[in-house]
Amino acid sequence: MSDGAWWWAAFAIAAAAAQTVRNAAQRELTRTLGTVGATHVRFLFGFPFAVVFLGLIVAATGTWPPAPPAAFWPWVVSGAVTQIVATALMLAAMGERSFLVVTAYTKTEPVQVALFGLVVLGDAVTLPMIAAILIATVGVVLMSLRPGQAGLQTGGLRPMLLGLGSAALFAVSAIGYRGAILTIPAGFVTAASTTLCLALMIQAVLLSAWLALRDRAVLIAVLKAWRPSLLAGFMGAFASQLWFLAFALTAAANVRTVALVEVLFAQAVSRFAFGQRATARELFGITLIVAGVVLLLWVH
């Protein structure tokens, strides 16, 4: 395999690093803007940067992107809507558990894809796959327990369910975006950038309209907080640009495997930026989650 064939891995690693910074910035904005407001920041302030990215590509190639076909829209809309809800669930979970722990919850995404395949599509599940799912599940349970608890109580169960729900919707979103990219008859860079631009436009319009109707005060607060929101917006658009480039080159499962390095980045941010120390139990749980996900994708 030529070196160029591994560009998707480089894109995924860089995207994981950028996404960690974006998540940390959004987490801080949750304190002043609330969960929905901080969720909106990612899309509203990310959209202009996505337009800039697409403009640079058009200038470099001298070619305008083709009009997306009809098959593009169901894919991109499903990806955009599920990503909105997934982001909101993730930020809500981060308000109750540490940055590192919630990031690890979201990394169960590939495991959930296998479970969805079994329940919805009737895909066969082998013994090694069952072992991988059980290993990752034990890791999630270990992380959900707090010192002194005899079992899963509200303090541990609620953020766990929020994190796992977020992972499930991120999985659906990734599939939607890859499907959208593959429908555009253009090079992978143009197809990925066009999809990103239109997805962020849909998300910015939907959330702006929802807030304008339901909670105008939050929308005003988001607009007033434009300075601290620029970092989250830029890093969000930059991470998405890299994710989409990776999705254009290989299957989403491959990209999500490499994305597990985000847990390591999150551990560094959690320790040095937020002063949150992971317990030995939580670190062991993270290890089991990563091991289970890697084993699952390896046996595939």
Results as ranks from 00 to 15, higher is better:
residue 27 R to A: 14
residue 139 G to F: 08
residue 85 V to R: 07
residue 192 A to K: 01
residue 186 A to Q: 06
residue 299 V to H: 03
residue 154 T to H: 08
residue 124 A to S: 13
residue 118 L to I: 02
residue 177 Y to F: 15
residue 26 Q to H: 10
residue 223 L to T: 06
residue 57 I to A: 14
residue 249 L to W: 04
residue 230 L to G: 05
residue 227 R to I: 10
residue 90 M to S: 14
residue 134 L to V: 15
residue 49 F to N: 06
residue 42 R to T: 01
residue 184 I to R: 03
residue 172 V to T: 14
residue 47 F to D: 00
residue 209 A to P: 01
residue 244 F to G: 04
residue 141 V to K: 00
residue 93 A to T: 10
residue 129 M to Q: 15
residue 239 A to H: 06
residue 24 A to Q: 08
residue 139 G to Q: 09
residue 163 G to V: 07
residue 77 V to N: 03
residue 48 P to M: 12
residue 158 R to L: 15
residue 217 A to T: 10
residue 71 A to D: 15
residue 226 W to R: 11
residue 288 L to Y: 08
residue 297 L to R: 08
residue 160 M to P: 05
residue 280 A to W: 11
residue 123 D to C: 01
residue 33 L to P: 06
residue 201 M to I: 02
residue 265 F to A: 12
residue 30 T to P: 06
residue 240 S to Y: 13
residue 64 W to G: 03
residue 116 F to G: 10
residue 156 G to N: 07
residue 294 V to S: 09
residue 10 A to H: 01
residue 201 M to S: 08
residue 298 W to P: 05
residue 185 P to R: 06
residue 55 G to N: 06
residue 201 M to E: 03
residue 176 G to P: 04
residue 19 Q to K: 09
residue 123 D to N: 14
residue 284 F to N: 03
residue 3 D to N: 09
residue 47 F to S: 05
residue 226 W to E: 04
residue 107 K to N: 02
residue 192 A to C: 12
residue 138 V to I: 15
residue 194 T to I: 06
residue 152 L to Y: 08
residue 74 P to L: 13
residue 117 G to Y: 13
residue 146 R to N: 11
residue 124 A to T: 11
residue 24 A to E: 07
residue 236 G to V: 03
residue 262 E to C: 09
residue 90 M to R: 09
residue 270 S to H: 02
residue 110 P to T: 12
residue 169 L to K: 01
residue 132 A to V: 12
residue 11 F to E: 01
residue 75 W to E: 12
residue 129 M to S: 14
residue 107 K to F: 13
residue 183 T to I: 07
residue 54 L to E: 04
residue 123 D to P: 00
residue 276 Q to I: 07
residue 261 V to F: 09
residue 111 V to C: 12
residue 184 I to A: 02
residue 266 A to N: 05
residue 150 A to F: 04
residue 295 L to E: 05
residue 182 L to V: 12
residue 81 V to K: 03
residue 201 M to D: 01
residue 82 T to D: 06
residue 167 A to V: 05
residue 245 L to K: 08
residue 11 F to I: 05
residue 159 P to F: 06
residue 278 A to H: 01
residue 18 A to H: 04
residue 36 V to K: 01
residue 48 P to N: 11
residue 70 A to R: 08
